[in-house]
Design a protein around this nucleic acid. Structure first.
Length: 402
RNA sequence: GGGCGUGUACCCAAGUGGCCAACGGGGUCAGACUGUAAAUCUGAUGGCUUAUGCCUUCGAAGGUUCGAAUCCUUCCACGCCCA
């Protein structure tokens, strides 16, 4: 068993702030003494089906706690998702229907299982509808009376929206309170979150104190930058890598990691791996490209398998270094278009490479399209698909079948 | 409830009767260059049976006009101020 100091040191790799640090230390010490595991809470809203590498950062910290014998308490925010977390937003989130939320929630536990231990001793999964569905208006009023409007407007994102005249709906003020109430209901000792969650997490600590329970310690992790190289990785920005993304292929992890800006390498290594940073920094210095390949393989090995990592690398080399078509690509039958010959733009649409005939036509004119490796610039070209035919538009491939 | 504003394509934003499928920027896609990228340069960015043709689009519905994103009416939504 690691000493408390070693544990805190191990956490520091991925923690931006621990509030308050002394409190966390005290909790760890008490847990060791009494043999009672700490309850490490992490909330996730099922607002989209994918768990991203951005979520993986706090999840890895939760995993560290699990490895030390503590218990993860995963809150699936089926009720909070109906409100929509306003954190970092500059407008109201769209509200999801109950069905969408339930469907998304179902896949979460499975995805999270790639990172966390999932046996009953190490993981407790709760839906916050468990307690919110039972509340009546009086309960809600009691909850809302805990915080003032001024306290809410202290939050950077609310303040910005208020001062720039972007509307804030009243239900959005409830979000931090609801998240905090989750902590009260689950007796969290520690709450994890991204650094944009600090406000919400601290509300939990306050509400616990108000309920005369020990206040949770709060650990926030740095935010992982998304594939655009600028903004926080998030589902709504579509700049994310999902933990269940395929290893290779156009939307695969390998390609997404390779197309990250070089400058992100250090933070990705720090936040997503446990490799010693000394050698990693040297490698990044020496060859950012090789560092990226190594990272891609490391992450794919973690989330898929070592074989998948090797295959993904091989595919990538084939496609982008040697500029040959990959082995695996999406396949589409042409039958439903009726008998040939077919116009090329229509085939591009059928293969999902273009959104409309017009777009297909433009891309052909731009020289972006090739058939079986032959570049085509004649947008009126017609062809009959009597054997498997490989279409390429930009870096995307598709195979057409008769 | 009253007053003043605002509503344009994925986002921001010009346009205030015909030259508007609608300037510009961002984003996105593609081409060149590369290390896969980033940066840079270039092109594209409503749909259709590719047509100097048709259809749909400037919050919604009506109306005026030969002709409307632009004018009028009503409605809806949002912001600010007053109550």
């Amino acid at each position: 068993m690691m000493s408390i100091d070693d544990q805190l040191a191990a956490l520091s790799r991925r923690t931006e702030r621990i509030v308050p640090e002394a409190d966390l230390r005290a909790k760890l010490e008490r847990s060791t003494k009494t043999g009672t595991p700490l309850r490490i809470k992490l909330g996730m809203d099922p607002t989209a089906p994918d768990v991203t590498l951005g979520h993986a950062v706090p999840l890895r910290v939760v995993r560290q706690f699990q490895d030390w014998g503590h218990k993860a308490v995963l809150i699936i925010g089926d009720y909070t998702a109906r409100v929509g977390d306003p954190s970092g937003r500059n407008k109201t989130r769209p509200q999801l229907s109950g069905e969408e939320i339930d469907q998304n929630a179902r896949t979460y536990v499975e995805q999270v299982g790639k990172i966390l231990l999932t046996d009953a001793a190490h993981l407790e999964t709760r839906f916050n509808g468990e307690w919110f569905a039972k509340m009546n208006l009086l309960d809600v009023l009691r909850l809302t009376s805990k915080k003032s409007v001024a306290q809410m407007l202290e939050r950077e994102d609310f303040k910005n929206r208020y001062t720039t005249g972007v509307d804030i709906r009243i239900h959005e003020f409830l979000y931090p309170l609801m998240q905090g109430w989750d902590s009260v209901m689950t007796d969290a000792d520690v709450e994890m979150g991204g650094s944009d969650q600090l406000f919400n997490n601290l509300v939990g600590r306050d509400l616990q104190a108000d309920a005369e329970k020990p206040g949770q310690a709060v650990i926030v992790t740095p935010l992982l930058v998304g594939t655009d190289g600028v903004k926080k990785m998030s589902k709504s920005q579509k700049n994310y890598i999902g933990v269940t993304d395929p290893a290779s292929g156009p939307s695969g992890m390998f390609g997404k990691i390779m197309s990250l800006p070089d400058v992100l390498m250090e933070s990705y290594y720090t936040l997503l791996t446990d490799l010693p940073m000394g050698p990693v920094k040297e490698q990044i210095q020496r060859s950012p490209r090789d560092a990226k390949i190594a990272l891609a393989k490391h992450l794919i090995t973690w989330l898929h398998t070592a074989e998948a990592a090797n295959t993904a690398e091989a595919d990538f080399v084939t496609q982008f270094v040697k500029h040959e078509a990959p082995q695996e690509m999406p396949e589409f039958g042409v039958g439903e278009l009726g008998p040939g010959p077919h116009k090329l733009p229509a085939l591009l649409v059928r293969a999902g490479l273009a959104a409309s005939n017009g777009e297909g036509t433009r891309k052909i004119k731009e020289g972006a399209v090739s058939i079986d490796g032959e570049k085509v610039t004649d947008f009126q070209k017609c062809l009959t698909i009597d054997k498997a035919t490989v279409l390429k538009l930009g870096r995307k491939y598709a195979r057409l079948l008769p």
